[in-house]
């Protein structure tokens, strides 16, 4: 079972839900796919060990063979190659690594070189019975998706994998949520929360992934998120109250189910609901 925890708006509680859900279930993999700012380990304190580099391929031009025909620059949709009157100039950070320039070069003057854009790390601990896999994009690198895809290749299909997605609705979110069995959209009952929830719902519907909503900081704001979910037939899986004790535990980096065991049952119940939802393919 592969479950992505996503949201349109940032700061709604994705990491809180992902970490607490993984811990409540145990024997699970937690994948921190928010590779621009991975933060699950703030709540776990695992010792992380580097697993591997994430490389993308970028072109390298043999200026001896290049005739400055410009076909590569013309082909590149990302403008990573510029043809000047007397030379080519490459912009590796614009390159998406598609390899098209190598194919269109009539002189075989372009080869592909590897460039590291991030790393994958793995962490386990005596204290918690889960495995953490974390991707980190190097500072200044623009493309998060290759790191996320390589991280997801480590999913163990025989266990439960919980994915902590980046916020928003752009490419890194699609890379995180794609091919999951289920997506939990975390929101808060505020006008911002509702606006960005609607955008996120649009994305998961287009990806054809089953989904439900967790309302965090319930009690804050108004009832419009719930009204929206009802009118759209979106299941509300859980409501986490706007509660001082939860906030204090969060501020200390403690997953709240550790000290509020009743919530461990709630998260397990939510997982069972998700399994039912998945097994009846949405007839919930």
């Amino acid at each position: 079972m592969k479950i992505a925890i996503a949201s349109g708006k940032g700061g709604t509680g994705k990491t809180t839900v992902a970490v607490n859900l993984a811990l409540a279930l145990g024997n699970a993999q937690l994948l921190d796919c928010d590779v621009e700012e991975p933060n699950c380990n703030l709540f776990l304190g695992f010792n992380l060990k580097k697993e591997e580099d994430v490389n993308i391929t970028v072109p390298e031009v043999d200026s001896g063979k290049c005739t400055l025909c410009g076909k590569c620059a013309e082909f590149c949709q990302y403008n990573a190659i510029a043809k000047l009157p007397r030379s080519l100039m490459l912009f590796p950070k614009l390159c998406h690594g598609c390899g098209g320039c190598v194919l269109v070069c009539p002189e075989n003057a372009i080869i592909e070189e590897k460039r590291s854009i991030g790393i994958l790390e793995k962490g386990t601990s005596e204290r918690f019975n889960i495995e953490l896999l974390q991707g980190t994009l190097n500072i200044g690198e623009p493309m998060a998706s290759p790191v996320i895809r390589q991280l997801k290749a480590h999913i163990d299909e025989s266990t439960v994998a919980i994915i902590d997605s980046p916020p928003g609705t752009a490419c890194p979110v699609i890379a995180s949520v794609a091919e999951m069995d289920y997506c939990v959209l975390v929101t808060e009952p505020t006008p911002f929360g509702l606006n960005d929830l609607i955008l996120a719902v649009d994305v998961v519907r287009q990806l054809d992934i089953l989904f439900g909503v967790v309302i965090n900081r319930h009690g804050l704001g108004d009832g419009r998120v719930e009204e929206y979910c009802q009118s759209e037939g979106v299941p509300i899986l859980m409501k986490i109250p706007y509660d001082r004790k939860i906030a204090i535990l969060y501020s200390k980096g403690i997953p709240f189910i550790e000290q509020m065991p009743v919530w461990k049952e709630s998260f397990r119940g939510m997982y069972e609901d998700i399994c039912k939802h998945v097994s009846c393919k949405g007839d919930f």
Partner: peptide, 9 residues
């Protein structure tokens, strides 16, 4: 993306 690269060329 890369609008500046194109414009400069």
């Amino acid at each position: 993306g890369g609008a500046g690269v194109q414009a400069a060329q």
